[in-house]
């Protein structure tokens, strides 16, 4: 019995040592490693979890103000997933940051514009003007043959395998997406989610797209050759 106690104590010490050493190795690795790229910008993790503020979305919107529909979604985007232009006046001397986040971090009704401000899906990016530019003229420099091409299924919810199964994600996902930005009360009316409190969207909803050129289709060899 005594021996058992000693053994278990030694085992405990060993485990503790392994954990402590492991942690410190990991910490130093994180600090000094030069091969490890910063993953924070690298993944699409933003679109799995969202900032908590969205949860009380229904309390901050003005239900009488206009809501977005898919047409509105495309009215200031060049294509699905393109950064939208800014439909209101902006001051030019700043890169955005707090000036934009004041309204767009939480979203909700803004009296100045008599509209519901959409929630920014990526409040961690401060350099707003990098991607979002205002509209200062209606005219074109020269006409273009550019066409807006959309995936029809992204505006129609007909992408369930079974009647009860969770729909797949019919559109592409970029790193700047946050599901509830579009799928909550402040987003597009037609695709509003019934369960905004469940924040781990991709637990049930998987993208329909795959990187086409990434790999060949997986085909298992038959067990028996006929």
């Amino acid at each position: 019995m005594k021996r058992l106690k000693i053994i278990s104590f030694v085992v405990f010490l060993m485990i503790a040592a392994v954990i402590i050493i492991g942690r410190s190795i990991k910490a130093t690795y994180e600090k000094t490693s030069i091969d490890e790229n910063d993953k924070s910008l690298n993944s699409e993790h933003d679109s799995i979890l969202l900032h908590v503020n969205i949860l009380d979305v229904n309390n901050i919107i003005d239900k009488n103000a206009r809501f977005k529909n898919t047409a509105k979604y495309f009215s200031n985007r060049a294509y699905e997933g393109a950064p939208p232009t800014v439909p209101h006046e902006v001051e030019g001397t700043q890169i955005g940051g707090k000036a934009c986040l004041k309204c767009h971090e939480t979203g909700g009704y803004v009296d100045k514009f008599k509209a519901n401000a959409p929630i920014v899906p990526h409040p961690n990016f401060e350099n707003c003007i990098q991607c979002h530019v205002p509209v200062n003229t209606k005219n074109e420099f020269k006409d273009s043959n550019w066409e807006l091409v959309t995936n029809k299924s992204s505006s129609e919810i007909t992408n369930q395998a079974l009647l009860t199964s969770p729909p797949v994600i019919p559109h592409t996902i970029t790193k700047t997406d946050d599901c509830l930005s579009c799928h909550s009360g402040l987003g597009i009316k037609k695709v509003r989610v019934t369960h905004p409190e469940r924040t781990n969207c991709r637990q049930c909803h998987v993208p329909k797209y795959t990187q086409k050129d990434e790999q060949d289709e997986f085909i298992r060899k038959p067990l028996v050759n006929n």
Binding site: L41, A78, Y79, G81, T174
Partner: peptide, 28 residues
């Protein structure tokens, strides 16, 4: 359409407004 390449260590999936709309320059 355009998106930033998440595998690129340069921009890690992000682009700027010119990059996002770059393909439109082909269709004037």
């Amino acid at each position: 359409a355009v998106k930033g390449d998440p595998r690129s260590s340069v921009n890690k999936g992000l682009a700027c407004v010119k990059g996002y709309h770059s393909v439109m320059a082909l269709y004037g």
